[in-house]
Amino acid sequence: MTQETAASFGQRLGRVLRHWRSTKADARRAFPDATLEAVAQAITAGERTHRGEVRFIVEKALPADEIWDGVTNRQRALALFADYGVWDTEDNCGVLIYVNLADHKVDIVADRGIDRKIDTGTWQTVCRTMTDGFRRGDFHQAALAAVEQVNSLLREHFPADGERPNELPDHPIML
């Protein structure tokens, strides 16, 4: 085994162990019911001011086979974007905020209608808002600040144009 192969194996094993040790209790401490409800309310309020549809998914850890296969945070976010139908909105205006607690990473996936107007660097800034807050242990305020940033971007680029149905549930999903 080469030194590079050993290092890669060690990184994979470390990631598997980090995910394996991540518990539902850890996730609930980071995102208690009050925080999840506040995020849902922020999404609902924001969606009244723009045409976007926002989903917020928190995952305590990836399944072991996905970790071992090297699935990245971005790949997982894209899979969840599809699995939860965030892409399936009338105006192609779905946005997924994905939080992976075990990896301490956040990813945002925007549907093609939004992706044309808001660049990757802007989404990375929103992700940094969350990860910086998470590092300080302030999951509640960091999540709300990020949702507000997303709502603000959507208000700017996709302002509300009258009554419309809520196409996706607003309450966060805990996996």
Rank of each mutant, 00 (worst) to 15 (best):
R12G: 15
L13N: 06
L13F: 11
G14I: 13
V16Q: 08
L17E: 14
R18Y: 03
R18Q: 12
R18C: 09
H19C: 04
H19M: 01
H19Q: 02
H19W: 05
W20L: 05
W20D: 13
W20N: 04
R21Y: 09
R21L: 14
R21M: 14
R21D: 11
S22H: 02
T23I: 05
T23D: 06
T23G: 02
K24Q: 11
K24A: 09
A25V: 08
D26G: 08
D26K: 11
A27Q: 08
R28F: 12
R29A: 10
R29T: 15
A30V: 02
A30I: 00
F31M: 03
F31V: 03
F31R: 01
P32I: 01
P32M: 02
D33G: 04
D33T: 06
A34L: 13
A34Y: 07
T35Q: 13
E37C: 10
E37L: 15
E37D: 14
E37R: 10
V39L: 07
A40M: 11
A40N: 12
Q41C: 11
Q41K: 12
Q41W: 12
A42M: 08
A42I: 06
A42Y: 04
I43W: 07
I43C: 12
I43Q: 04
T44Y: 10
A45H: 05
A45D: 08
G46L: 09
G46H: 04
G46S: 03
E47G: 00
E47T: 03
R48K: 14
T49N: 09
H50G: 10
H50M: 14
H50Q: 10
R51D: 08
R51L: 04
G52E: 07
G52T: 06
G52K: 11
E53G: 04
E53K: 06
V54P: 08
V54H: 05
V54A: 08
R55G: 01
R55V: 07
F56E: 00
I57L: 04
V58C: 01
V58K: 01
V58L: 00
K60E: 10
A61C: 06
A61I: 12
L62R: 13
P63Y: 11
P63V: 06
A64V: 09
A64Q: 06
E66W: 12
E66I: 07
E66K: 14
W68Q: 10
G70S: 03
V71T: 09
V71E: 03
V71R: 00
T72W: 03
N73E: 14
N73P: 06
N73K: 05
N73D: 10
R74T: 00
R76K: 03
R76L: 02
L78I: 07
A79W: 08
A79F: 06
L80K: 00
L80T: 00
F81L: 03
F81A: 01
A82H: 13
A82F: 10
D83P: 08
D83R: 13
Y84R: 02
G85E: 13
G85W: 15
G85R: 11
V86R: 02
V86S: 01
V86W: 05
W87A: 09
W87C: 09
D88G: 07
D88E: 14
T89H: 05
T89N: 00
E90P: 06
E90M: 15
E90F: 11
E90H: 11
D91V: 10
N92L: 15
C93Q: 12
C93K: 15
C93I: 15
G94S: 05
G94F: 08
G94C: 05
G94A: 07
L96R: 03
L96Q: 08
L96F: 09
